[in-house]
């Protein structure tokens, strides 16, 4: 038996998860929620994480009903993400690893999403769409790397949705994306927006600028409702994501799609992807908000795979890094 504890705090969620050989023993999480119209700033987010990380850790240990002696490895998010929140969580991971005399393991956040998605869904060798507030990538495994086939050339798709929510002062509780999804269900009119796919890459900043500029004018003139805008934005963004995913699948000859990352729990995105998969005779795999949204268990799970394949991170090399590409990691745990 191998037990790994994972610490995640690269954005506005702080989570501690404990995994034992593919079983989630505990996965508590807290979210830093800002008022409508406001994003989360690094220093405020770090303050939030500092205030609750130790409570979340205690909760995880209690829920898992284990003692520190039972743990084999302490995994934490090395990057990518916001510097101050990443560092806050790394400090706690380094401290407990030393207190408990356990090896430390720095995990790439994107790899955490992929490995947790594979574990939960049982997808064998999927084309992965990783969509969140900070990342948008189409990934496929080849030659001991998660290769990036397509990605955003500017902002992440979730960042586009979050910032649109700020324009309309949509609540950030539980998340702006969730509230956009609910409003979009009531949208009736499709407003045409720019559509910007370039090969297997996509661009979202132009769409955001367009809708930021146009939203209030259209709403004031009564041309459309906020719900129509939510609906139109989702349809446009998600069509782009489906298109780049399909292109990568065709390129790789893949018959599986796995959606991970916070935007991945959007049911409309899953529906649209399912239609494409059906047409191609492919299978779609997705998870719910417990595992799509950042959590500690995903870091523990990637850590479990890495640790079992012989990797650890010496303390003096345990620095955090805001930039850390998915394809920098050598995947030593897959054939």
């Amino acid at each position: 038996m191998t037990v790994v504890i994972g610490f995640e705090g690269s954005a506005n969620k702080i989570g501690v998860g404990i995994m034992r050989d593919g079983t989630v023993l505990a996965n508590p999480r807290r979210t830093y929620i800002t008022p409508p119209g406001q994003g989360f700033q690094p220093s405020d987010t770090a303050r939030h994480h500092r205030a609750c990380v130790l409570d979340v850790l205690q909760e995880a240990l209690q829920e898992a009903q284990i003692t520190p002696q039972d743990i084999d490895c302490v995994a934490y998010t090395k990057g990518p993400g916001m510097g101050a929140p990443l560092l806050t969580v790394a400090i706690v991971a380094r401290t407990v690893a030393q207190l408990w005399k356990k090896p430390l393991l720095g995990v790439n956040h994107c790899i955490g999403h992929i490995e947790m998605g594979r574990l939960i869904t049982g997808a064998q060798n999927p084309t992965v769409l990783y969509v969140s507030g900070g990342n948008t990538q189409v990934i496929a495994y080849s030659e001991h790397r998660y290769q990036i086939f397509g990605e955003t050339i500017d902002i992440a798709v979730g960042n586009c949705l979050d910032r649109f929510a700020r324009v309309l002062k949509i609540s950030n509780d539980p998340s702006p994306g969730y509230n956009i999804e609910q409003m979009a269900k009531k949208g009736k009119k499709f407003v045409e927006l720019p559509y910007t796919v370039k090969g297997m890459d996509a661009s979202f900043s132009g769409i955001l600028s367009y809708i930021e500029e146009a939203a209030h004018k259209m709403l004031l003139s009564g041309n459309c409702t906020p719900e129509d805008l939510c609906f139109s934005l989702q349809e446009t963004l998600f069509s782009m994501l489906v298109e780049i995913t399909e292109r990568a699948m065709a390129h790789c000859g893949s018959q599986e799609v796995l959606i991970v990352g916070g935007v991945g729990c959007n049911v409309r995105l899953q529906e649209m992807m399912a239609i494409m998969c059906k047409e191609r005779g492919a299978r779609l795999f997705a998870t719910d908000e417990r595992f799509c949204i950042d959590n500690g268990a995903m870091i523990a799970q990637a850590g479990w795979e890495m640790f079992r394949s012989g990797q650890t991170t010496p303390l003096e090399q345990s620095w955090i890094t805001q930039r850390y590409r998915t394809d920098e990691v050598e995947v030593t745990w897959r054939d």
Binding site: V53, L54, T88, I91, V92, V96, Q98, L99, W100, K101
Partner: peptide, 20 residues
């Protein structure tokens, strides 16, 4: 920012220590 992190590692030792 160093003082914030120092305080966090000390708090962690207080709650999850002493060292094994």
């Amino acid at each position: 920012s160093f003082l914030d992190l120092l305080s966090l590692t000390v708090q962690t030792m207080d709650r999850f220590g002493p060292p094994l």
